[in-house]
Design a protein around this nucleic acid. Structure first.
Lengths: 341, 341
DNA sequence: CTGTTAGCGCCTTCAG
DNA sequence: CTGAAGGCGCTAACAG
């Protein structure tokens, strides 16, 4: 076991300077009611003695941690990482820190993480829900204890929670309608768990666009993945053996769109001539493949910042109203979906 | 301000059950010296009353936080995100949590983050250094206070710190030699700050390979980027106006390799026929572009786990030896660099 | 402007 | 097996 040197406390400083610990505390926390030369003495002594305030003691006393918990399904996706980057930035500039847990798309882990966050007395919680989440008790508990929770991206749409998201219905509608306008009428949709609002909303938007264009909905053109990274390839194989293959593919994220497209190209399918492609999230890979991928762009960093700021506002707000923030998105049309050039 | 309900404490449980807080504490922490039916009563009451242990009080008392600080340059790169995912996984299964700060490649922010970590009394620190780091005082302070620090990927090569990394010299040597074996002898190297060991080591490996192949080193073939994402394009433009353009490009990461390659292809340069390409880090984009990119693969998740475990070991080790862990890597040869098929 | 005092909630001797 | 007591380091009244 490494020897932990005894930490310097305000009492040590007080003793050295022959003053009271209270004064030391006041000087250190920037209280104005301290004579400027005693303050200076204290600050000097503190830095000379290598003092570092103990946040546990301070937090225990003040009953606030200046820590925000963040629970995400996975850290290693481009979008999530951007999101976290935005969160960290906003929190940091407000003097907060973040403590992160991954749910690995498992409710059990999500529950465990929520409990740990409570123990650590986070001042608030930011959550993007796990894949197959079906219960929210663990968050209700936090909320009932007075710890505000803001959901972002993958949210809970019951109107009783704070959400930051985009209009997935409308975005998917736009994508689908764009494909229809390119002359496509057999549009295959690669989606994921309908328990997650983002995917359910996108499917609804897709269906609505078909309806408005008087194209019959066909169950055969719906593929549901569990977000396994290999799924793009499976989808390609599925498509190749269809009797009536699609003339367009709309995937819920760019990664599936790209991997599926690449696999089909390998099997000599021409994109967009034979099959047009569209994805979602504007992953950088979308601009680096040939053809470049049509997608829906929304800024992960901004969403993270927005979610963090929403939470921080709740921390200082007088009234606790539920906010449902809908961020802007933009349909980015690229080569993969433009049929008549 | 949201009203924070008064948290239930062990005293509340004790009062309800007419026993002492000490016994409650014992039962809750799993101490064996508690009659099994009083233990059961306590556990039931705790869950009925919605008790959640206050980590501040506990940490203050026990002088350990079960928190590990992580300071990284940026959260939103594929490799870093993988790394964090690995760290979180290892820490979590050992009952630790992680608190993350980004240095945004700035020493000032790195110093601030290190100080905050100290205040939060993290039990240990995991660091991947910022781009232009030139001082390490801030980490020495932590170490001298008994808080172990393990550096990973971007490390400090003075032999007095704990490091987890790959052999960048050898990996770059291998890449360069591979390009030479493909018949290239005008190999342009896109690198970054030589203050960072990873880039300096790779440049050395590159030079050594040239030397061993008796190819004269040419300063003109060295490009130094500040990691600005646009740099791949700038590099392409630089190459296009060279009198004696390279027949191969070796970039310190796949992103630069891909963006530079794509830009050159747009200007009708053939890859690999005119210019071969190789990158570093095995980013997924490397397999999705045409041609696929030759690269050096090393697993970010594994590196994260290894770094975390190294740190956890130091926390329990008797003797504090410095470890310098060198992870395996693998040269992944893909289409972008194979000249004679 | 400064000192005294009293906890924040938990854990850990030391006694029974 | 259980209780009493003290203290981790800090801050916030309350007095002067």
């Amino acid at each position: 076991m490494i020897h932990k040197t005894k930490q310097v406390t305000i009492y040590d400083i007080a003793k050295t300077l022959n003053i009271s610990a209270a004064t030391v505390s006041r000087a250190l926390t920037g209280n104005v009611d301290v004579k400027s030369d005693t303050r200076e003495k204290i600050l000097n002594a503190a830095s000379a003695m290598g003092y570092s305030s103990n946040n546990f003691a301070s937090n225990l006393r003040k009953k606030q941690s200046r820590m925000i918990g963040v629970i995400v399904p996975k850290l290693d996706s481009h979008f999530m990482a951007e999101t976290l980057s935005g969160i960290e930035k906003s929190l940091n500039s407000a003097g907060y820190h973040m403590i992160i847990s991954q749910s690995h798309e498992s409710v059990a882990a999500e529950i465990k993480a929520a409990k740990a966050m409570l123990k650590n007395r986070v001042d608030g919680l930011l959550v993007s829900l796990c894949y197959d989440n079906n219960t929210t008790k663990h968050f209700d508990e936090l909320i009932s204890q007075g710890v505000p929770v803001v959901f972002y991206d993958r949210t809970l749409d019951k109107g009783e929670y704070d959400n930051v998201k985009i209009d997935n219905f409308k975005a998917a509608y736009d994508v689908t309608m764009h494909l229809i306008n390119q002359g496509c009428n057999r549009i295959l949709h690669i989606t994921a768990s309908q328990r997650r609002d983002v995917y359910a909303d996108r499917l609804s938007g897709y269906k609505q666009a078909l309806k408005d264009a008087k194209i019959a909905f066909n169950e055969e053109y719906i593929l549901v993945t569990d977000l396994n990274p290999q799924y793009g390839i499976e989808a390609a194989n599925y498509i190749m053996q269809m009797n009536n293959p699609p003339d367009a593919v709309f995937a819920v994220n760019d990664f599936f769109a790209v991997t599926c497209m690449k696999e089909l190209q390998r099997m000599n399918v021409r994109v967009p001539e034979d099959i047009a492609f569209a994805g979602f999230n504007n992953d950088p890979i979308g601009t680096l493949v040939t053809p470049t991928i049509t997608t829906v762009n929304y800024d992960g960093i901004k969403m993270g910042q927005l979610a963090a700021r929403t939470l921080l506002n709740k921390l200082t707000e007088k009234i606790s109203t539920k906010s449902n923030i809908v961020m802007a998105y933009e349909l980015v049309i690229r080569d993969s979906s433009v049929k008549r050039i």
